[in-house]
Design a protein around this nucleic acid. Structure first.
Lengths: 182, 182
DNA sequence: TCTGTCTATGTCTATATTTACATATATGGC
DNA sequence: GCCATATATGTAAATATAGACATAGACAGA
C-alpha cells in the first residue's frame, strides 16, 4: 500500500471510476501512467479494498467500473489519520532559472518564463471553470462552501490550485519585467 | 543525461561542491538521495562533464570537490535553450484533503492543515533570511536585483519559494477558518 | 483514404528513486 | 557511557515511475 494506492481509494470515496478515468482524474494530485494504475487496481481488488463491475460496450471497448469496499474504506480511514508526508516537486525550470547568467541568448531565457506563464494562465482558466461548475452543482452562493458536502475536498483543492498558479503567474511576470526585452 | 544530471551541472556553474554538499543543496530544486548523486557524479566525471579534486581532511572524512568542465558547460548550454518540461508535484495532503468528508474526527482533519501551515511558516522564515543574505552579499538595495550577477538565478528562485509558500500558508489558514474548531 | 486521437485494458522493459547496508571519526546531549 | 547527528563516500537491493509494445473499433479532419 503505497501513496498512489491510497490515492486511488481516496478518489473512489466520491464516485466509481474505470481505470482509464482514474488515470485521467488522478493527474492533478499525483502524476501516474495507466501502466501503474491498472496493476495497482488489480492488486487492490485482490486485497479486497476495491471491487469492479464489468460494463460491456459496443461502440467502445468494454470497461471495468471500480468501487471502494468496506475494507477499503477502513484501510483508507487508518491512513487519513496519519500525518501527511512532505510534498515533492520536481521542476526543470528551477535549474534553468538558476542558470540565467549562462544564457547566451536573452530571448531564450524570456521564452522559458513566457511558456510557463502561458501554462499557468491555462490552468487558472481551467480551475476557474471547474470552481464555477462545482459551486453551481452544489448550489453554493459566493465563496461559502459547506463542509458536509462530499465535494468540499475537491473544492478546496481547486482553490489551492488557483492560489498556486496565480502565484506562479505573478512570479513569471515579475521575472520577465526584470529581464531585458531584446 | 537525465534532468538530475543537468541539475548537478546547473549548481556547479556558480561554485564547486562535494557530492555531500550537492545532495544537500539540490533538495529544494529536485529531491534526491546521496545514493543517486554519487553514481551520477562518477558517470559525469567519466563523460568529462565534471572534474574533481581530492581534499584530504583529518578531523573529517576526505572529500572530492567537483567542478564543471568546458565540455560540461557546453552540454548544459545546449539543454538550457530547450523548453522546460512540465513540473511534477506529488503531495499526500491533496489526497487527504480530498477525503475531508471521510474524517470521523474533525481534530485529525485540522491537524493536517495546521502541520502544513507550520511547515510553510518555517520555509518562509528560512527563505526570508536567505533573501536578506543574498541581498547583503550582492549589495542589492531593496527589491532590485541585477541580472548580471551569477546569483540572480538563485535570487529569483528564493522569491518564487516565498510566493508559493505564502500562497500555501494562506490556503491552509483559509481551510482552517472553514473547518469546525472542535 | 490516411492519419491521428479517443476509448479501454493490459504487459514488459527500462529508468529513476528510495531504503538499507557498509565504514570511520568527531561532537553534543542525556 | 550511550545514542543521535554531522561529516563523507560509496554499493546493493527494492520499489516506483516512465516508455514502449499490443490490440481494436469509432470518429474527425486533411
Amino acid at each position: 500500500m503505497n501513496t498512489l494506492a491510497y490515492g486511488i481509494l481516496s478518489l473512489l470515496t466520491n464516485k466509481t471510476y474505470s481505470g482509464y478515468e482514474l488515470t485521467q482524474h488522478i493527474q492533478p494530485f499525483w502524476p501516474a501512467k495507466h501502466s501503474q494504475i491498472y496493476p495497482l487496481l488489480a492488486s487492490l481488488e485482490q486485497s479486497g479494498y476495491v471491487s469492479f463491475e464489468l460494463v460491456v460496450q459496443h461502440d467502445k471497448p468494454d470497461k471495468k467500473i471500480y468501487a471502494i469496499t468496506e475494507n477499503g474504506s477502513a484501510k483508507l480511514a487508518e491512513w487519513l489519520a496519519l500525518p501527511a508526508g512532505d510534498p515533492a516537486t520536481r521542476d526543470e525550470l528551477a535549474f534553468k532559472a538558476y542558470c540565467l547568467h549562462k544564457f547566451a541568448n536573452s530571448a531564450d531565457a524570456r521564452k522559458l518564463f513566457e511558456q510557463r506563464a502561458a501554462v499557468s494562465r491555462n490552468k487558472l482558466e481551467f480551475l476557474k471553470a471547474k470552481k464555477a461548475e462545482v459551486r453551481a452543482r452544489e448550489g453554493w452562493p459566493s465563496d461559502r462552501p459547506t463542509i458536509d458536502s462530499p465535494h468540499f475536498g475537491a473544492y478546496i483543492l481547486i482553490d489551492k490550485g488557483q492560489r498556486m498558479f496565480e502565484a506562479e503567474l505573478e512570479w513569471c511576470e515579475w521575472v520577465l519585467s526584470q529581464l531585458p526585452e531584446a
